[in-house]
Measured scan of single mutants.
Amino acid sequence: MISLIAALAVDRVIGMENAMPWNLPADLAWFKRNTLNKPVIMGRHTWESIGRPLPGRKNIILSSQPGTDDRVTWVKSVDEAIAACGDVPEIMVIGGGRVYEQFLPKAQKLYLTHIDAEVEGDTHFPDYEPDDWESVFSEFHDADAQNSHSYCFEILERR
């Protein structure tokens, strides 16, 4: 099963200049909980913004210009990325925008964090048809001392 995991502000903004323009430790914990011990696929820009392999996960970098870091697996196509994951129950696609666009048609599940923030962004989550998805989990949280904005975790499964 292919799943996408993303944090989205208003207007589906997911990033600005290779960074997330908010401070939500709870979302980072949600991300870790849902990706640990699963292969993660990301684009080169996302890889560069993280700066290191995510521990406890097979890191697969999709790029037309593969790098030389041998701590991760470099691939040039969506099919190659899927094959590099091996026989696993769930593959997690973690961004960025172009990689989400490439995998959305193949995805069966979306793990979304909806952030109540209007922020400037240069990267967006692809538009998706809500009628194609069923919400199977939703959990709202107010902003607090650690988390700069209110947010809602949601899991959607393709109908």
Rank of each mutant, 00 (worst) to 15 (best):
S148R: 01
S64C: 14
N37G: 08
P21D: 00
I50T: 05
Q146W: 08
G56T: 07
C85T: 08
K106H: 12
M20V: 00
S63D: 01
D144P: 02
D144K: 04
R158T: 05
K76W: 12
I5C: 01
H45Y: 04
A26F: 08
E129N: 07
F137Q: 12
A145S: 08
S3Q: 02
L62C: 15
L28N: 02
K38I: 06
P89W: 13
G97Y: 03
D132S: 11
I60G: 02
Y100Q: 01
M20L: 01
F140H: 07
P66A: 14
R158M: 06
T123H: 03
K58W: 09
D131N: 06
A117K: 04
V13R: 01
A6N: 05
A84M: 07
V40K: 00
D87R: 09
G97M: 05
E80V: 09
N23S: 05
L54I: 03
H45G: 12
I94L: 10
K58E: 10
A19F: 15
A26E: 02
S77Y: 14
D131M: 04
N18L: 14
I50Q: 02
I41Q: 01
T46S: 15
T73D: 08
K38D: 03
E154F: 08
R44V: 06
G86T: 09
S3L: 01
G86S: 08
R98E: 03
G67M: 15
E154L: 14
G97Q: 11
H124M: 07
E157W: 08
D116F: 15
Q146G: 08
D144F: 03
E17S: 05
G56D: 10
E139C: 07
E48R: 15
H149V: 10
A117Q: 10
A83W: 10
P89F: 05
R158S: 05
A117F: 02
D131W: 11
D127S: 12
P21K: 02
S77C: 13
E154V: 13
E17C: 03
S135T: 10
G67P: 15
A9R: 00
A143I: 07
R57K: 01
F103L: 07
Q146D: 10
L36V: 03
I41P: 01
I91W: 05
P130E: 13
P126W: 04
N23G: 14
G97C: 04
V99M: 08
A83H: 11
C85I: 14
E101W: 08
K106E: 11
D70V: 12
W74S: 05
A81T: 04
H149C: 06
M92T: 11
W74A: 06
D70R: 13
S135Q: 13
A83D: 08
E120H: 13
N59D: 04
G56W: 10
N147V: 03
M42G: 02
M20Y: 01
F137G: 06
G121N: 00
A26R: 02
L112F: 11
M16A: 14
D142P: 12
D11E: 15
N18R: 08
P130R: 12
V75L: 12
P25Y: 09
E129G: 15
V78Q: 11
P66N: 11
G51I: 12
A145Y: 09
F153I: 06
L8V: 04
I60S: 01
P55D: 14
I91V: 15
V136A: 10
I115H: 03
F125P: 01
F153C: 07
P105D: 08
R71M: 10
I155T: 05
R98M: 03
V40C: 12
V13S: 07
H114I: 13
I155K: 05
E157F: 06
G121K: 00
E154R: 14
V119W: 06
N59A: 14
D11N: 04
I60L: 14
V99N: 04
F31H: 00
N147M: 04
D122R: 01
T46F: 03
E17K: 02
S148N: 01
A84T: 09
R158H: 07
G51Y: 10
P126A: 07
A9G: 06
R33I: 13
I41L: 10
E139K: 08
V75K: 09
I94S: 02
T113G: 00
R159F: 11
H124G: 11
P55F: 14
L4H: 01
E90F: 02
R12A: 03
E90K: 00
E90I: 03
A9N: 15
Y151V: 11
H149M: 01
K58H: 12
A9Q: 02
D131T: 05
T73N: 09
G97N: 05
A84L: 08
G43W: 03
D142F: 12
E129P: 09
V75S: 11
E134K: 10
K58R: 13
P126T: 07
K58Y: 11
R158K: 08
N34W: 08
P39K: 04
R159M: 10
K58I: 14
S148A: 00
S64R: 14
V99T: 05
N147T: 06
Q146A: 08
R52T: 14
V10M: 00
V78A: 15
E129L: 10
S150Q: 04
A29R: 04
G67H: 07
L62T: 04
V10Q: 02
H149A: 04
E154W: 07
E129F: 10
D127Q: 11
D132I: 10
D87P: 09
P89A: 12
D144H: 04
E154Y: 12
E48N: 13
C152H: 11
V72M: 13
P25F: 12
G67C: 15
G51E: 12
R12T: 03
P126N: 05
E101V: 07
I91P: 02
D69N: 07
P55I: 12
I41R: 02
W30Y: 15
P130F: 12
G56A: 10
D11Y: 02
S135C: 06
A19Q: 07
W74M: 10
L28V: 01
Q146T: 08
E118M: 10
W47M: 15
A19G: 15
G121A: 02
P89L: 10
I5G: 01
A143E: 08
N34C: 09
K38V: 05
R98D: 04
W30T: 06
K32I: 00
G15S: 00
T35C: 06
H45K: 05
T68A: 15
T123M: 02
I41N: 02
G51D: 13
Y100T: 00
I82A: 04
I61V: 09
D70F: 12
D144C: 05
A26V: 02
D70I: 13
G86N: 09
T68G: 12
R44I: 04
V99P: 00
I94T: 03
W30L: 10
R98K: 09
Q108A: 09
F140G: 13
A29Y: 02
L36Q: 15
S150V: 05
I82V: 09
R158P: 04
S77I: 06
E118T: 13
L36R: 13
T73W: 10
P39A: 15
M16Q: 06
H114A: 10
T123Y: 00
F125V: 00
M92L: 13
T123W: 00
R12L: 15
I155E: 04
A6G: 07
V78G: 09
E17F: 02
R159G: 12
P130C: 11
L112V: 08
V119D: 05
R44N: 15
E90T: 01
P53H: 15
N23L: 08
A145K: 08
E129A: 08
W47P: 02
I82P: 00
P105W: 08
I14R: 02
D144W: 03
F103A: 06
E90W: 02
D144Y: 03
N37D: 07
G86C: 07
L156Y: 15
H114L: 13
N147W: 03
E120N: 12
P25S: 07
G56V: 07
S148C: 00
A83E: 14
H45F: 04
A9I: 07
N23P: 04
V136M: 11
Y151C: 14
D69P: 11
A19M: 09
V99A: 11
R12F: 04
Y111M: 06
S3G: 00
P66V: 13
R52D: 11
L8P: 00
V136I: 10
L36H: 12
L112Y: 02
V13E: 04
A26I: 09
D79G: 09
H124A: 14
F137V: 10
D127I: 13
A6T: 15
A83C: 08
N18A: 08
K58M: 14
M16H: 02
D132M: 08
A84W: 05
H141P: 03
M16G: 02
A19E: 04
V136F: 08
A117Y: 02
P21C: 15
V136T: 09
Q108P: 00
K76R: 14
N34V: 08
D87M: 09
D122I: 00
M92W: 05
L36G: 10
P25N: 08
A84P: 01
D142V: 11
T68D: 15
F153E: 02
P126L: 04
V136G: 06
N23V: 12
